[in-house]
Design a binder for these strands. Structure first.
Lengths: 248, 248
DNA sequence: CGTCCGCTTTAACATAAGCTAATGGGCGGC
DNA sequence: GCCGCCCATTAGCTTATGTTAAAGCGGACG
C-alpha cells in the first residue's frame, strides 16, 4: 500500500491538504477530525456515490482513493469534469442548491467521511477558520475547473494530456502521495480520454507520443515524470492556479 | 423582498437575480442595497477590471453591462472562461485566495458596485441569508463552468454555439433582459470563438449554419431565438444546472 | 467626403482528431 | 489449462475544424 509518511490517522490526507491550502488552528482541526471519525464510510471501485439530480444533504471528504465528477449527454457522450483526490471534499456547501448537477463515481476503493448538513453547518458556525478553509476548497475547485476549460478549449491533445498529468502530480504532492517522480494514476485510458475531451484512440496515440518524447512513463497505473519542468513546458502549464503552496 | 428590484433602482438586476436563485429577506436585501449604493462605479468597454495574478480585496457586483473572465496562454491563445452578466457577482469570496487566477474584462460599458472585503465580511456576518445567497452565487458559477467543460469537451461546434446561446438566454431571463424571444448579445464573433474554443473562422461558419437552419437570427448584436426548445434540442441542452427557478 | 479600422464573411487548403475495426495481453473464473 | 473480458494498441480511412489570406462593410473621424 501507500507509504503515508508520518503517522496521522485516517484523516491525514485531509489535514495535509488544508495545511497546504489554508492551515487550521489546532482546535478547528480537532473539531473537524472528530466529525470525520463519526462518519467514516467506504466504497468499492466503480460505485456511484451520487448521481446527477440527486438531492444532497451532506458533505463528503475523501480520505483515500480516487473519484471523478462527470456529466453525460443524452446520447451517451461522457465528460469527466474533475478528479477528486485524497484529502479533497466532494461537495462542500452543495446542499445549498438542493441537488447536484453532476455525478460522482469512484475510480478505486475509497474511504471517506460523510458529515450531515446540520452537523457541518454547526461546525462551520463554531469554527470560523474551518468555514474559510472549506470556502477555499470550493474556490480552488472553481479555479481548477477554469483551467480545465482552457485545457479543453485551447490546448492540443498533446498539451492537454501533459497538462492533466502535471496538475494531478501537483495536486497529489501536498497530500504526500507522490513518490520521487512517480505517482499512482488509477484510471483507464477511457477515463483519461473523457477527462481531456478526446476519443480513446486518440488519447492512446497521445500517450504514446508523450512516452516517445521521453516525458513520461506510464505503466501499471503508475505515472513517472522524469523532468517535470519539461513536461510543464510542453503543456504550457502555468503554475499558481492551484495555490497549494505551503506544502512540505 | 418588497421594494428591492421591483422598481428601477440601479441594483434591480441584482435583486431580480437573487430572487430567482435564493430570495433574500427584506432586511438583508436592504443591507445589501445600502452597501451597493456606497460603492457605485463605472467602466468603459474593453477595460480590464482585474488581471490574472492581481491581488483581490473586494467583491464586485455587476449592475449593468457584460464582462467576461478569461485566461491567456503564453503564446497568446485566449480562452473565455465565462461571461458575467448583469446582476452577477465577479468574485464573491475570491479574496480568500489572495490573488485571482484569471482576468476580467468588460465587453460593454459596465456599472458595478465595489464592496471592500472588510465591509463584505461584516455584511455576511450580520446577515446569514445574504451569506448563503453569495455562497449560492459561487456554487452556481461552479456549475456553469462544469457545463462549459462538457460543452468544450464533448459537443460539436454547432452544438457548442447553440448551447452557449441557450445558456445566455436563460441567464438573462431572470434579470429581465430578454425581450420576447430576443436578447442583446454585445460581443464579437472573436469573443464567441474564444468562449467556445473555436477559431474565428469556424465560429463564423457555425453561426451561418445556425442561421441557415432557422434556429437563430443574429444581427446588430441582437440574438433572436425563434424556437427555444428546438435550439435546446440541437444543443443537447439539459436544463437544471442553472437553477434559476423562481423567475417571473 | 474619403480613409482607416474593426468586424464579418468567403475561399482554398492543411491537419488534428474522430471513427470503425481488428489484434494483443493480462487476469480471473471455471 | 482454456475461455472470456477488459483494457491497451495499431491500422486505415473520414471528417471536423484550423490556417492563411483576402474581400466586403459600415462606422468613426479628420
Amino acid at each position: 500500500m501507500r507509504a503515508h509518511g508520518t503517522e496521522g490517522g485516517v484523516a491525514q490526507a485531509v489535514f495535509r491538504r488544508f495545511n497546504a491550502l489554508r492551515p487550521l488552528p489546532d482546535e478547528d482541526a480537532a473539531a473537524l477530525e472528530h466529525a470525520i471519525l463519526e462518519g467514516l464510510l467506504r466504497a468499492g471501485p466503480g460505485e456511484d456515490l451520487i448521481t446527477e439530480g440527486d438531492p444532497v444533504d451532506s458533505v463528503r471528504i475523501v480520505l483515500s482513493g480516487w473519484l471523478f465528477r462527470h456529466k453525460t449527454l443524452e446520447d451517451g457522450r461522457r465528460q469527466i469534469v474533475n478528479f477528486i483526490l485524497p484529502g479533497e471534499t466532494c461537495d462542500a456547501h452543495a446542499y445549498l442548491l438542493s441537488t447536484l448537477d453532476h455525478s460522482i463515481t469512484t475510480a478505486t476503493p475509497v474511504a471517506y467521511a460523510e458529515i450531515k448538513r446540520a452537523r457541518f453547518e454547526q461546525l462551520m458556525a463554531a469554527h470560523h477558520a474551518l468555514a474559510e478553509a472549506f470556502m477555499c476548497e470550493t474556490l480552488l475547485n472553481n479555479a481548477i475547473q477554469r483551467e480545465w476549460i482552457v485545457n479543453l478549449g485551447r490546448r492540443s491533445a498533446f498539451e492537454r494530456v501533459a497538462h492533466l498529468f502535471c496538475e494531478i502530480f501537483e495536486r497529489l504532492r501536498p497530500v504526500g502521495l507522490i513518490d520521487g517522480n512517480s505517482c499512482s494514476l488509477p484510471v483507464t485510458q477511457t477515463d483519461l480520454a473523457d477527462a481531456t475531451g478526446l476519443s480513446v484512440v486518440h488519447a492512446n496515440r497521445t500517450i504514446q507520443e508523450l512516452r516517445a518524447s521521453g516525458l513520461i512513463v506510464l505503466k501499471d497505473r503508475t505515472l513517472t515524470i522524469g523532468d517535470l519542468e519539461a513536461l510543464k513546458n510542453a503543456a504550457m502549464y502555468s503554475p499558481g492556479y492551484l495555490r497549494l503552496y505551503r506544502a512540505k
